[in-house]
């Protein structure tokens, strides 16, 4: 069952289309990763879903309602991002205590437990927090809200590696105990893909892929070795990415299904068959320009 339905959804800022005729559906009680490069439209999309922005055209339904002016959708969703601001007349602990009336499922003991664990200063105002501590504090609100639709926009910005790992683990543990629909936007796919069920990859406001995380992991395969040998196997097939690796040597990424039957033969001929990290694959699939950063440095 879908919790969010978008049909032909568009959001323009002047001439720029941040979201461009996007049709998608987010299923209930799944953890979905919204992945895309900087400026791909992730934040705009999430703000529309949370009801902060009104779409320019197209249809968007959250819990079967238009989120922009629906109390129902608003009461059942939360958007956590780094622009959240709280009045400085509240201390951090006050903020957590004041959440109870806003979120029906608010888990106060979990919020305070996480707060203690991260050793944040209860008396501090929100605006004084460092970047990483602010992200940590906001993530506590996101987890403890247990909102039926919980959205995190770049939740780990500024967090150190230990805090990020703790966040993913805390989120997953609470999700297991209390399943709900969760969307996480990030460009750090490698460290969070393990907890994702689905991945929605967007690029320039359009959908590039939407599939189970497990399938993305096996979508592509990399072949590396003697350039002529590589070419003989991939000729005429659609290449996702290629890189001149060393003199006379080539690295090519393409869909696994295109060479599935020949993999044994390819190995026999001395080429390396490599798995492609989902992180890298997403970069290749959303490249704005052909080639990579190395081409900038190639003169003449």
């Amino acid at each position: 069952m879908g919790v969010i339905h978008g049909v032909d959804l568009t959001k323009s800022y002047g001439k720029l289309k941040a979201i461009d005729h996007l049709t998608f559906e987010i299923e209930q009680n799944k953890i979905t990763g919204l992945i895309g490069r900087n400026g791909s439209g992730k934040t705009t999309l999430l703000k529309m879903v949370a009801g902060y922005l009104i779409p320019t055209s197209g249809e968007l339904k959250v819990f079967s309602e238009n989120p922009f002016n629906s109390l129902e959708a608003s009461a059942n969703s939360i958007l956590i991002d780094d622009t959240m601001t709280f009045s400085d007349s509240f201390t951090l602990v006050d903020i957590l205590k004041e959440m109870t009336p806003f979120y029906a499922n608010w888990n106060s003991s979990l919020a305070l437990g996480l707060f203690d664990y991260y050793s944040l200063n209860p008396k501090q105002p929100h605006s004084n927090l460092s970047k990483g501590s602010k992200s940590t504090f906001n993530s506590i609100i996101g987890i403890a809200s247990r909102a039926p639709l919980t959205i995190f926009d770049e939740p780990t910005t500024g967090m150190d590696s230990a805090a990020r790992k703790d966040f993913y683990r805390a989120l997953l543990k609470d999700y297991l105990e209390y399943p709900r629909t969760i969307i996480l936007s990030s460009h750090l796919l490698s460290e969070l893909e393990g907890i994702l069920e689905d991945i929605l990859l967007i690029n320039q406001g359009t959908k590039r892929l939407h599939l189970p995380a497990l399938e993305l992991k096996e979508l592509a395969v990399g072949l590396r070795g003697n350039a002529q040998a590589v070419i003989s196997f991939v000729e005429g097939k659609k290449i996702i990415y290629q890189e001149d690796f060393a003199q006379g040597s080539l690295y090519v990424v393409l869909k696994r299904e295109l060479v599935q039957q020949q993999l044994e033969q390819i190995r026999q001929s001395g080429l390396e068959v490599l798995s492609v990290a989902t992180d890298d694959l997403c970069v290749y699939l959303t490249a704005k320009t052909k080639g990579g950063i190395d081409d900038v440095f190639k003169k003449g």
């Binding site: 799944k30 953890i31 993913y168 683990r169 997953l172 543990k173 297991l176 393990g194 907890i195 994702l196 069920e197 189970p212 995380a213 497990l214």
Partner: peptide, 17 residues
């Protein structure tokens, strides 16, 4: 699948597979 998800910090759908 839920125990495995907890143990390895992975999505329960992955554990089920």
């Amino acid at each position: 699948q839920y125990q495995l998800a907890e143990m390895f910090t992975i999505n329960p759908a992955t554990a089920a597979k």
